[in-house]
């Protein structure tokens, strides 16, 4: 699991994180430019990014598509009530389905909220989301007792990750 405490970012890592929150410079030598901006050695900047990638502080480096603007306007949070003895094994399988962008095990909240597995899917329309939910349902099989799909109808607030210095 990825929530294990790993290598903690030091003060210089945090400066690097802050400097790249808006993104990488779009210049031929982006890491050199960052180094210059932060008063660091370019090799140090690259070594730090590689280390943060290796330990999972950086999930990945690349483009982040805007799902909504690219036509994936149906955003469904699918939630599943899965047998506790099976949820960890099955959650791994659900996470690997190509339609799933995030997948977590979370606590239930009594009879009002019996769901312990959350899988986010994005489709061009709700029909596509329903098709994806059917794939997830098939993956979970008998271990799943109930499910629901919560479509988002409005983004009320969306800000990036804030890192204090």
């Amino acid at each position: 699991m990825t929530t294990d405490a790993g290598y903690p970012p030091d003060a210089t890592d945090r400066r690097l994180i802050q400097a790249t929150q808006a993104g990488l410079p779009l210049t031929p030598r982006p890491y050199h430019q960052l180094a210059e901006q932060l008063g660091l050695d370019p090799d140090d900047v690259m070594a730090r990014l590689k280390r943060m990638l290796a330990v999972g502080i950086v999930r990945r480096i690349g483009v982040v598509p805007n799902h909504y603007a690219l036509g994936f306007v149906a955003n469904g949070m699918t939630v599943w009530d899965v047998d506790d003895a099976e949820v960890d094994r099955l959650g791994e399988l659900v996470g690997r389905l190509p339609c799933v962008s995030h997948c977590y095990r979370r606590p239930r909240a009594g009879s009002r909220w019996p769901y312990n597995l959350f899988a986010m899917v994005h489709g061009h329309d709700r029909g596509e989301v329903l098709g994806y939910a059917a794939e997830i349902s098939q993956t979970l099989g008998q271990a799943c007792r109930a499910h629901d799909i919560l479509y988002s109808s409005r983004i009320l607030k969306k800000t990036g990750l804030r890192i204090g210095d």
């Binding site: 790993g6 808006a22 779009l26 210049t27 990638l53 805007n66």
Partner: peptide, 25 residues
């Protein structure tokens, strides 16, 4: 570089760069 710039300007991309894991901070 030009195309990434254009995709960002057109909002086809929300970001380009390292994606951080908040849980590891």
């Amino acid at each position: 570089i030009l195309r990434i710039e254009r995709l960002l300007a057109a909002r086809a991309l929300t970001r380009f760069g390292p994606l951080y894991n908040a849980d590891r901070m």
